[in-house]
Design a protein around this nucleic acid. Sequence first.
RNA 1: UGAGUAAGCCAGAUGAUCGCGUAUACAGUGCCGAAAGGCCGUAUAUGAGGAAAGUCCGGGCUCCACAGGGCAGGGUGCCGGGUAACUCCCGGUGAAGGCGACUUCAAGGAAAGUGCAACAGAGAUAUACCGCCGCGGGAUUUAGACGCGGGGACGGUUCUUGCGUCUCGCAGAUCGAGACGCAAGAACCGUCCCCGGAGUCCGGCCUCCGCGGUAAGGGUGGAAAGGUGAGGUAAGAGCUCACCAGCAGCAUGGCGACUUGCUGACUAUGUAAACCCCACCUGGAGCAACACCGUAUUAGGGACGAUAAAGUGGCCCGCUAGUCCCGGGUAGGUGGCUUGAACUGUACAGAAAUGUACAGUCUAGAUAGAUGAUCAUCGAAUACAGAACCCGGCUUAUAGGCUCACUCAUACA
RNA 2: CGGGGUGUGGCUCAGUUUGGCUAGAGUGCUUGCUUGGGGUGCAAGAGGUCGCUGGUUCAAGUCCAGUCACUCCGA
Length: 121
Amino acid sequence: MVKTVPMKKNYEFMRVYKRGKFFVGKFITLYVLKNDSAVNRLGITVSKKIGKSVKRNRIKRLVRENYRMFEAYTASGYDYVFVSRISETVPDFFDIRKEMKFLLKKLNVFDQEKWNCLKGC
RNA sequence: UGAGUAAGCCAGAUGAUCGCGUAUACAGUGCCGAAAGGCCGUAUAUGAGGAAAGUCCGGGCUCCACAGGGCAGGGUGCCGGGUAACUCCCGGUGAAGGCGACUUCAAGGAAAGUGCAACAGAGAUAUACCGCCGCGGGAUUUAGACGCGGGGACGGUUCUUGCGUCUCGCAGAUCGAGACGCAAGAACCGUCCCCGGAGUCCGGCCUCCGCGGUAAGGGUGGAAAGGUGAGGUAAGAGCUCACCAGCAGCAUGGCGACUUGCUGACUAUGUAAACCCCACCUGGAGCAACACCGUAUUAGGGACGAUAAAGUGGCCCGCUAGUCCCGGGUAGGUGGCUUGAACUGUACAGAAAUGUACAGUCUAGAUAGAUGAUCAUCGAAUACAGAACCCGGCUUAUAGGCUCACUCAUACA
RNA sequence: CGGGGUGUGGCUCAGUUUGGCUAGAGUGCUUGCUUGGGGUGCAAGAGGUCGCUGGUUCAAGUCCAGUCACUCCGA
């Protein structure tokens, strides 16, 4: 990932939860907070209540892969925290892709023009 | 063909594009840095499991403790072998289940001691309620025998009366005497029957009490002190016998658990996943162990310097504070970290587990934690599930498929 | 990595020590009585695979083993 570093510390997560904006989707919740640096920071949280380690890893990978796809079109200088939600069905790649795009748009950190340009060109 | 038993195996593959961890190599007057080196980039190689899981056992490794021994606590528990070790594995013994292939078993000791066994039942680790039998006694009833009283029948004897016959006395009749027969009456005796009374004796039935024998039978219970059959007995009982089961001793085969045979005593409830006894094993903690480096900041100790300045205070002492050293040591980093009781193949030893020898291979090492996404093809692509110091096991979860051996049933040849 | 606890009517808990009496209490529920009606009160009743599976035992909520879920503590 070109312009993103992982977020690791608990206090960093708490800062985003307390001060950041959030929007709730069906499978994931997105928290966003502006940081004062040039790079993005990505945090992924999957609770133990979701399932055993295979299921949790699966969701983490899907979220990370999708973020990688959308990274070029996100606004820079933000902290992103994705929190998985408990659901009956395990989401597949396209569920996450659709929902992540929706959440990024809702929180105004998605560069629609660049996306359209790429599609148009 | 169907049903089943057992032992194993696989755990999507191939290709394309994008992306991630590690290792190696290379390159850029790229970036950071005094340097070592790190970051970025490219290429190549490689990258989760049969259970990686649960954490139920056993070890390696590290640190702490430790003269030696014992107790306590914990664990194991048929026998032999295997192993670094095991609560594991292999083979066997015994028991249980299955028609069978085969499967399962915490499988030492209940005759060292203690505890517990509700309810039911006469009685629960010893008992005697009912019953059966013997002896003694009481009460009641019945029958019999003997004896007593009364009545009747029959028979006998004696006496009286009448009649007849005969004999004798008388000539004869009357008459008298005697004998015999018949009839009637009376008395006595005997036998039998009936009735009465209840005296004595004996037996039986019912009932009660006491003493003794017995444990076959009764019903209860999970369990009633061997089971079945025959003899035996007052009634019964291993009291005796046969078979079976159990115990002890001896012998036989086996390294052993144990098997088989003989002899003897004649019986000993269950529970040790109740306490316990016996034999054997056992120090504690865990890679967040442990070792090293160590920033910011700082508990504490010591030294120096100044009463000039700052804070506290009305002022002084004092405290805070200044510099240096010692020092524990946090965040963080590095090592531990993958060559190992390793894997693959072959040969040999062994019944097997397993061992030995030789050859070959290097096969994740992350640190918020790397394996993912899309597309195409294959008849389908789907289960349980993600290494975290490392091994050996156990247990649990698991879609679909494959191989080999064996058993039973049916059909055909 | 290591250690502990809990699971019993709808809810909150006893009972597990030392196995045996119909598994009990409060609250909630249902019905009836009380009241003009409701509440309160009184009486009666229903409701339990003792988390699940197996074993030991004559007998298991209780003992043993395995397993599932929840929860707590320490490094």
